[in-house]
Design a protein around this nucleic acid. Sequence first.
DNA 1: TTTTCATTTGAATATGAATTTCAATTTCAT
DNA 2: ATGAAATTGAAATTCATATTCAAATGAAAA
Lengths: 150, 150
Amino acid sequence: MKTPIKKFRKYIDDNNLQVTRQRIDIAGVFLESRRHLSVDELYELLRNRGISAGRATVFRTLKLLNKSGVADEVDQGDKVTRYEVKTEDTHHDHLVCTVCDSYIEVYSSQIEEMQEKLCAEHGFKPSSHRLDIFGICLKCSKKKGNKKCI
Amino acid sequence: MKTPIKKFRKYIDDNNLQVTRQRIDIAGVFLESRRHLSVDELYELLRNRGISAGRATVFRTLKLLNKSGVADEVDQGDKVTRYEVKTEDTHHDHLVCTVCDSYIEVYSSQIEEMQEKLCAEHGFKPSSHRLDIFGICLKCSKKKGNKKCI
DNA sequence: TTTTCATTTGAATATGAATTTCAATTTCAT
DNA sequence: ATGAAATTGAAATTCATATTCAAATGAAAA
């Protein structure tokens, strides 16, 4: 099992790209963070840690991480593309809270199987899918106000 | 059971809006079409039929149709918001072909049930969801070239 | 019908995220 | 160290979405 950072370095090698300070810094902070991050969010996170990197570089590095198979794109339906660290284990779906924007990652092999069956019935060859359930998380449904759930 | 156009008119009435030529024309063409339409696509469709309406009006009318409960937003993951006529029957998921951009609407009550269960396990109150499976449709997988499937 | 007042329209403009440009800088191999 | 090639990042561009505002239209009153 290869670590994300090794995967990233391998991709860089294989494609005759260079290992630069920015790429290492950006990948490092991204991989540590266990959140869904947009370009701007990651850019700010880097700034807060005193790491200098331009937005364009953050943007390009996230694309690179995605192509390396280290990062997955996630679309929370708000027109902003975010990325998450691709887990070694299976694909997962999301329960997205519309009050606090937090999310829970879930996985159901039964649902996956159903999907396979559904595709087969239509002669459709699936390559990826996305299941997002929007609603209200436990914390928020217990609260009165509209404060963020952290 | 109310027809979509009546629903739309009721919404207009209830909100002290006006029934205008443009709104009727735009809603008419949208409801006839059985496709997913973006603002620009619907705008072009209208032009082709010799119906004059500005992009801004098409944009606003689609929002209005959405609020009326006549149109649903669909996100094909390509950063363009499209709308589809909301069906009377249950919600459906999509098998989206990444070669020709066509899609098949599918529905599986079993998958829906699984989703409910999954949410319940996490104390999550679902309000909506989105399941899109991306892959290659039957027609495209039979073809050599990359021509559109229509 | 004519006046009055609010709503609607649509061309133009603004917004904002995604993406690209390009000159300056950095990296790597020699 | 040198030079070719890749990278960086500020600024510009693109493109869909959203808003502005003056002119047009609609509805209600006179």
